[in-house]
């Protein structure tokens, strides 16, 4: 019996051939599109952010409208560290991961209770509170002007961040891959299965002896940490932090990316981010100001047609 359970768990976490193809394509994207590396960097960061929301929403079942809180927190933390002379990018990234995890841990207690609506409200207002702090604490964050021209040391002392995003995008892709491995391990482990159980049916899960709240707290903190790293990456590779990292539309955008790619599936966020950013790049070339209209139209259409129906397409194509 236990052997069979082991075998089932192992089977679910085994690497499929297409996964290698996917990551080979990601690496190839960096080599084949040298002039689009700024976009590649953006996609990698958005993908990481969407993957983090997937842990909260897809696996933890918590509807969050304020996930940008952790993204922005990581970005601002990195910016402030750089401003005060701590310019080692790797150390800044790790600091952002730890601090965001701590923030996630603290705020996770707020989202444990209550209905979907109060979770939406609480996550939203956590991000709004951070936005207000970033906006008002001008001496620390630069307020509405943000922090520009942040300087970071070269990576490992030898790869300097360049204007065309070559180093930055490679760095983002590598961090994305490492954190993807971590998230994959997390989700595929028995612990990860218990998280899914806790989200799917809290009452039953508690009845078989799994502490539901502890699982949600751990997942929320882990996801917050990943989102913080994504924000930190953005600050380091663009050398710029502004209030935009905490803005509401960022939380909404990342949710859109995730549901387009399919929540509850680690590649969902990555594929959604890819599609979203390519579409944004293309559409904003045509109608720069009214990009938002198409995002909105897309969301409405998505829900009216049926999210599950659309989200199952890429999965069906890849899994079969």
């Amino acid at each position: 019996m236990i052997d069979r359970a082991h075998a089932a768990l192992a089977k679910a976490t085994r690497w499929h051939p297409w996964e290698f193809v996917f990551w080979a394509a990601v690496a190839a994207g960096w080599f084949l599109l040298p002039e689009r590396r700024l976009l590649v960097n953006e996609i990698a960061i958005a993908g990481l952010f969407a993957m983090s929301l997937d842990l909260v929403l897809g696996y933890g079942g918590i509807v969050s409208l304020g996930h940008a809180a952790f993204f922005g927190f990581g970005a601002y933390l990195t910016g402030v560290l750089a401003k005060y002379g701590f310019t080692n990018p790797i150390l800044d990234l790790i600091s952002a991961a730890i601090a965001s995890a701590a923030l996630g841990w603290l705020s996770s207690f707020l989202v444990l209770r209550g209905s979907d609506l109060s979770r939406i409200m609480v996550t939203l207002s956590v991000s709004l509170v951070l936005f207000e702090i970033a906006n008002r604490a001008t001496w620390l964050t630069g307020g509405a002007d943000g922090m520009q021209g942040l300087m970071f040391d070269p990576l490992f002392g030898s790869y300097e961040f360049d204007l065309f995003g070559s180093v930055g995008s490679a760095y983002s892709i590598i961090v994305l891959f490492l954190l993807f491995l971590a998230a994959r391990r997390y989700i595929g482990s028995p612990f990860g299965w218990s998280v899914r159980a806790a989200a799917a049916n809290p009452l039953r899960t508690a009845a078989i002896g799994i502490p539901v709240n502890a699982r949600l707290i751990a997942t929320y903190s882990f996801a917050a940490s990943i989102a913080g790293v994504a924000g930190s990456l953005l600050a380091e590779t663009t050398q710029f932090v502004s209030l935009d990292v905490l803005a509401f539309h960022r939380s909404a955008d990342v949710m859109l990316m995730l549901v387009v790619g399919g929540a509850g599936w680690l590649y969902g966020g990555l594929i959604g981010a890819l599609g979203f950013k390519l579409l944004q790049d293309w559409l904003s070339g045509i109608t720069p100001q009214y990009w938002q209209f198409w995002v909105g139209a897309f969301l409405v259409g998505l829900v009216l047609v049926g999210r599950e129906r659309i989200a199952s397409w890429p999965r069906r194509l890849l899994r079969r």
Binding site: L57, V63, L65, D116, L117, I120, A252, M255, L256, V259, Q289, Y290, Q292, F293, V295, G296, A297, F298, L299, V300, G301, L302, V303, L304, R307
Partner: peptide, 19 residues
Amino acid sequence: RSHLDQVLFSIGLVFMASA
């Protein structure tokens, strides 16, 4: 629909109206 769908749907409407 689920609350997530409702949120997505109504945010979409807001974005469209604003634009």
